[in-house]
Design a protein around this nucleic acid. Structure first.
Lengths: 214, 214
DNA sequence: ATATTTCTGTGATAAATGCAACAAAACGGG
DNA sequence: CCCGTTTTGTTGCATTTATCACAGAAATAT
């Protein structure tokens, strides 16, 4: 499964030339800081060049949900996610971050001399947005599953097919996985134990080997 | 909450001129037909100019889930949703449809004379993708809610704030709503009855009046 | 107008899940 | 190495929810 990023199909020199043209602003953030607040009027793109961050949404009652996680090379901004009225969307650092802010208008206006590369860049942005959309609907499909067991299996088999490994190691803690699956952590642990007993999987902590799907 | 569509901020004449340039293909589909199958290699955009359609995903076990619904003016295609390996994504008509297929490459390559409008078009496409992303994460947030009651209330209050009406009429059947909320239909009906008894809402069939949030 | 299908509402029962509270294991910083 | 913190594993219990089966209402087709 091909992955797109901002610089897919672009040479280092054309990237540098374009970026000079964009006049990006580099900012640093330490752990726990808020990097970015989504607002309808913003026209900014953030490129994470160092560290890890998360996008959280807070609903009217103050309930927080994790929407996305970002690492080096990932982008965020209204271009990828318009805010919904009445909700607050914040990008916050986990580890200390370095972020390049670029005005979205600089990107969509071809600036003459580097036009062909610029089009490639726009193409990349579209496909990154489409990837994000895919990830969201995968997440939705997982949460959609009627039981914890099916949620887990859907997640695990997708993870396996993406990484191509079978004893696969979770890219997050079990607590974080429970949050992602929208289930209670202890109920999830119980289900994992049962699945081990029934011989579906063999797992220890974050490492999972999948024997059969049901 | 501002809504974007393909022609936001564009005059009829510049739209016509651009569309001639794109050489789109117009096709008609009758009810139940498959309009479009997502594939990594496609570079096509579909613009629904008549009728209604749905995007469904089928997972490995054959379980189907509804991902999106489209009406006149809506767009679909890989640009908005890259397919996930191992899943099948189909756009199918509900009512008879008329669809304009446009090659994505025509759109991202500015074609000389109508450049400024073209940029506006690209801008619109980005924001439509961002809107789609917002809708997905709203859906996720709703499904995320721990109980049927909270799912319903989150959905209903969002619907109210979007339409600005309080006795609000569902844009779908109760069965479809249950599917959207990822809950059992009869369990949802029971919960609606209880919420009426407790005086939170007053509802009859698809019409809901919301008194208080808890 | 009547038949047929889809949609909506109801209730009993069983199963799945969340909650709360705690203990052991692993991790990380000083 | 030690100590505090985070992560993981465990259990009993109450609650929520799905399942199933059915009946009336509404919509649609004939």
């Amino acid at each position: 499964m091909k992955q797109y990023n901002l610089t897919s199909g672009l040479s280092q020199t054309s990237i540098k030339r374009m970026f000079r043209c964009f006049r990006p602003q580099l900012k640093r953030f330490s752990s726990g800081e808020t990097i970015f607040r989504y607002a309808q009027e913003n026209r900014l793109l953030g490129l994470l060049t160092e560290g890890t961050a998360v996008l959280r949404m807070t609903d009217i009652d103050g309930a927080v949900s994790l929407l996305d996680t970002y690492e080096k090379g990932d982008l965020f901004g209204e271009l990828f996610h318009l805010p919904l009225a009445g909700f607050e969307y914040l990008v916050e650092t986990e580890k200390g971050c370095q972020v390049l802010f670029i005005s979205y208008d600089h990107i969509i206006h071809p600036c003459g001399n580097v036009c062909e590369h610029h089009i490639q860049l726009i193409n990349n942005l579209f496909f990154m947005a489409a990837q994000r959309s895919r990830n969201l609907s995968l997440h939705l499909n997982i949460v959609n599953q009627p039981t914890i067991r099916k949620k887990l299996m859907t997640y695990l088999t997708c993870l396996c097919s993406q990484t191509g490994e079978n004893p696969v190691t979770l890219p997050m803690t079990l607590s974080a996985l429970a949050e992602y699956l929208c289930v209670d952590r202890s109920a999830m642990t119980r289900e994992i134990r049962l699945m081990n007993l029934e011989g579906m999987i063999r797992s220890s902590r974050r490492e999972f080997y999948i024997f059969r799907k049901e």
